[in-house]
């Protein structure tokens, strides 16, 4: 069943065409990886879906609703959440409070002026549970800025997961971490997807092992256009893709 549709989307940065008439349909329960060389338009596409950017032309439809002109916060409320390429978090809040911000927002409690967030049992339990799922519970009282890089990545992803979105967008979740940490991190993310019942995922990733191991579908972007859109096996066998990606 269709969850999200990107319809004839074009995006210009000045004179540079970052995306050119892109059409993409994302179904429920799909784990899609978007790959492509640098400058192919991967992050632009993710930012257009999350609302951080507006398309120059075209539409973005979520469950039949046109969300093209909606802000990231409005899209977040409808169930689209993005984690960032460079880990994004609240540096001077504790790990636990970082999660609480996400949960307070997702439960519609942000406008509560009078109740102490420290004494909200529901928020406390859910945020501690989410930290346990991501293996960050032991460091719940650390300031986010003091966490190691891998944990900052996890915290960014965890806060996105805590919103329990319909569609989660992960922009290079493993960039800047060691090979061993990559596997651990992806393992944690995959088990969190299951644990938190989040079924649809779009992943932008450079590591082909991760792409082919964790995706049900792979979309290849090149020069702002879709070069291929099929199963990991078929993409792997596509010579044009191999030429664009690896120059072979």
């Amino acid at each position: 069943m269709g969850l999200l549709e990107v319809l004839e989307v074009t995006k210009y940065y000045g004179d540079f065409k970052a995306l050119d008439n892109v059409d993409l349909k994302i179904n429920r329960d799909e784990r899609i990886s978007i790959i492509g060389p640098n400058g192919a338009g991967k992050t632009t596409l993710l930012n257009l879906i999350s609302g951080l950017l507006k398309p120059t032309r075209g539409k973005i439809i979520l469950e039949g609703k046109n969300i093209t002109n909606m802000s990231p916060s409005e899209r977040c409320k409808l169930g689209i959440v993005k984690s960032f390429q460079i880990p994004s978090y609240f540096p001077n809040l504790t790990t636990l409070d970082n999660l609480k911000v996400a949960l307070i927002s997702s439960l519609g409690k942000s406008k509560n002026f009078l109740k102490s967030y420290q004494q909200d049992e529901e928020i406390n339990n859910l945020s501690e549970r989410a930290l346990e799922v991501f293996g960050l519970y032991e460091r719940r009282n650390f300031l986010a800025k003091d966490l190691p890089h891998g944990d900052k990545k996890l915290l960014d992803v965890a806060s996105a997961f805590a919103l329990r979105p319909k569609l989660i967008l992960l922009d290079e979740p493993t960039s800047g971490v060691s090979i061993k940490e990559k596997r651990d991190l992806m393992g944690t993310i995959m088990s969190a997807l299951k644990e938190m019942e989040i079924s649809s995922l779009i992943l932008v990733e450079h590591d082909m092992d991760i792409v082919f191991n964790y995706s049900s579908r792979v979309v290849v972007l090149h020069n702002g256009k879709i070069l291929d859109d099929s199963s990991p096996e078929l993409v792997k066998a596509n010579k044009e893709v191999a030429s664009v990606m690896f120059g072979s």
Binding site: S73, S105, K115, L163
Partner: peptide
């Protein structure tokens, strides 16, 4: 009470990282 509330934490989040706060639905 206000700065210790859910609202107060959301304000702190906006101060710390407004892009992230918006991405989380604030």
């Amino acid at each position: 009470i206000i700065v210790s509330s859910h609202f107060g934490l959301s304000l702190k989040a906006i101060k710390e990282n407004s892009e992230k706060a918006e991405a989380l639905g604030i």
